[in-house]
Amino acid sequence: MNAFRLAGDMTHLLSIILLLHKIRAMKSCAGISLRTQELYVIVFVTRYVDLSMKYYSFYNSIMKIVFLGTSISIVWYMRYHKVVKQTYNKDVDTFRHIFLILPCFVLALLINRAFTVIEVLWTFSLYLEAVAILPQLVLLQRSRNIDNLTGNYVFLLGAYRAFYLLNWIYRFFIENHQVRWIPWLSGLLQTAIYADFFYYYIKSWKNREKLKLPA
């Protein structure tokens, strides 16, 4: 495993730890989109269906279990925890899941490496992951104050796929791996969606101002 891949996984893990800290210690999910969190559950469930069938490494299996478990528990807290659920900005989190799920599923049926259940679900999970942040970004744009934890969470979540892009470049040129258009292009789109957020995040950090996205 190269350093970019590890950096990607660690920023992904750190983003989840930050979000869980906000939820468990601060008892708040203010500014967090339940829609996006539910999409991540779908992403992990459809991508890791091979968990019980194929073994890659101890690291790989543990990380998959962690991503599945944490994403499900985040959704549970936001929906059912009696204190946390009251901090959820329900009225502004209005992005409809189906507008992302349906096109991604149709695209996965049409463009995939092999027309098998596992392969189509895996492809679907990559397409869906690329756009799953959209409800979260819409929610941030509608929020007046974005607290530091939420801003850092979204930043780390975006940085994770950017590191994966570097990892894919490294694997292609240095480790001589094959071309993998589906994850590469999905990952590129996923990172590009964050471009605007990255710009305002870095700007607010440089000017030591509170993060605010223009409407």
């Binding site: 996984d9 790989n60 990380m63 998959k64 895996w122 001589n176 094959q178």
Partner: peptide, 10 residues
């Protein structure tokens, strides 16, 4: 020749 595709990523 290039290495075969492995889904060892997350």
């Amino acid at each position: 020749s290039r290495r075969k595709i492995s889904k060892d990523e997350l």
